[in-house]
């Protein structure tokens, strides 16, 4: 089982979230040693150009030569993808979004219908699960609901068989974090 964690939190937020990431890391690694963790603010990644070269000129490869390629290599063979991000207006933060904007090389250009909507098929079909941990400074039900909706929609793009979502403010107790991360991983595995 290959797990890819895309950490879109800033260094400051990472300190707050350290307890949860360490716990998650420990738990995930008991199931599989193949984890790749990317701290996105440490990566040099340019924004997507919107050129579609990765589909019609260099299929499967982005024409921008930067560190996104190592993330794409990891995502292509990932069984579990876990996203960490601050909630920004209920959506993803720009660090994570910059990477996700450039995932189209791991998709095919064609249109196909899934759950009554058109999407792009996977270039590397696998049975995947998608997890997202959102960090919010002050709980806002509107933003939380939107974040959940976005992650569920993203799961369609990844053809994910299960989706787990956790939203944290950063002041949770250790006991709460442990219990929630257990639940999160069980949901990710499709066990609950």
């Amino acid at each position: 089982m290959n797990t890819v964690i895309l950490n879109g939190l800033s260094i400051q937020m990472r300190k707050t979230m350290n307890r949860i990431t360490e716990n998650l890391f420990k738990k995930v690694s008991t199931h599989s040693p193949d984890i790749q963790l990317f701290h996105l603010d440490e990566k040099k990644i340019a924004p997507c150009l919107g050129c579609f070269s990765c589909w019609i000129k260099t299929p499967g490869h982005c024409i921008i030569d930067d560190q996104q390629e190592e993330i794409l290599r990891a995502l292509a063979v990932a069984d579990r993808i876990i996203l960490l991000t601050p909630l920004v207006f209920g959506g993803y933060g720009p660090e994570l979004k910059k990477v996700l904007d450039r995932i189209i090389p791991v998709l095919l250009p064609f249109f196909y219908k899934v759950r009554g909507e058109i999407h792009h098929p996977q270039r590397y079909p696998r049975t995947r699960s998608l997890g997202a941990i959102g960090f919010i400074e002050r709980k806002n039900p509107e933003e939380i609901e939107l974040f959940r909706d976005i992650v569920e929609r993203n799961a369609i793009n990844w053809a994910a068989r299960s989706t787990a979502i956790m939203i944290l403010e950063g002041d949770e107790t250790d006991e709460y974090l442990m219990a929630e991360s257990d639940k999160f991983l069980e949901t990710l595995e499709g066990k609950s």
Partner: peptide, 17 residues
């Protein structure tokens, strides 16, 4: 903006922030 992965393109999110 164009819809990118169900949301706004990253550079636009940065500007709005």
């Amino acid at each position: 903006f164009p819809l990118y992965v169900d949301q706004l393109p990253a550079s636009l999110i940065s500007v709005l922030k």
